[in-house]
Design a protein around this nucleic acid. Sequence first.
DNA 1: GGAGTTTGCCTAATAGTATTAGGTACGTAC
DNA 2: GTACGTACCTAATACTATTAGGCAAACTCC
Lengths: 189, 189
Amino acid sequence: MVRAGLSTERLIRAGAELADEVGFDQVTVSALARRFDVKVASLYSHLKNSQDLKTRIALFALEELADRVSAALAGRAGRDALAAFADAYRDYAREHPGRYAAAQLRLDPETAASSAGVRHAQMTRAILRGYDLTEPDQTHAVRMLGSVFHGYVSLEMGGGFSHTAVDPQESWSWIVNSLDALLRNGTAS
Amino acid sequence: MVRAGLSTERLIRAGAELADEVGFDQVTVSALARRFDVKVASLYSHLKNSQDLKTRIALFALEELADRVSAALAGRAGRDALAAFADAYRDYAREHPGRYAAAQLRLDPETAASSAGVRHAQMTRAILRGYDLTEPDQTHAVRMLGSVFHGYVSLEMGGGFSHTAVDPQESWSWIVNSLDALLRNGTAS
DNA sequence: GGAGTTTGCCTAATAGTATTAGGTACGTAC
DNA sequence: GTACGTACCTAATACTATTAGGCAAACTCC
């Protein structure tokens, strides 16, 4: 009997691919075992349990997304950086819907604190350095940007924009431009 | 044997309550049967299947939320209407996290078209009548507002704002004010 | 290159959830 | 008071999650 060559690493990668194909909530230990043509119990040497699998896929997706955003931001500032951040974020979700959904998984505080989620927050703050904001406005702005980007991508992926004929790409650009204008023109509080 | 008095109506209401208590994804036919102290199979006279249960809870939540928002909007316009809409939305999610999660369930197009989701879109457009926007900017703005509100609530509920000491309520007000200013000052495209 | 050890994957067993088919008895209506 | 409809049940099947324990392939060390 030839061994399948399982490893936590390979399982997580395959789990991420599976998520993109069938949706993150359809990622199950059983489905993963089928994909490697091994018995379900065999995965438990590499994974603690189903929750562990999902958490690891989430952490993987967070890292991958942070890497992409980081690369997109390199050498940019101001409106350019904002647009690059936004596009990197949205493009990732469109290319990898399952991984994006995984990245939204609620993590327990310690796990979250040591995850790439921290890098996301740092990069958002880095972008805002191109605008003239002091605390607490900067935190408000971080939250607003996160909300818009996540909300838009989430609604778009959920089919929420398919009832209107307006091109989602145009709305996206309009929104990014609006946010840039808003941040440049000073705050509202 | 005393009958439990099940009905689709009661099951959906109980399902919504259950969702708020344990999370929407923990709402299962089994858990609901336990709650009524009947056998699982008994629910299948009132529900097609598990998917049907979830869809009906989602539709219920959409209606309830639309009713709340509608009541909050009555007699208001401009910034007032925007803030009322935003608060009604966020308050509902905080009071009823499970129902709010249910309301995000992806519905198939026909179901969505006959759901209260349509009222949500109409109410958002109604608010924007207080600002001076023409198409396609109005659609862009509808999408932006939906994104910010949904994104913020979703991130806040997911614990995404608990790493910073800034009060989420302050950020929320700041964001609503910013959006009002943005919409009033004309568009960016 | 063989002996001993590690460990990767297996079988088997238990428990929870979803779903369908068919039965029983309660409530109601005449 | 009998007869009907239906509300809820038992029973059976299937899939997922998880743990315990076994066998043999692969590594290691001389």
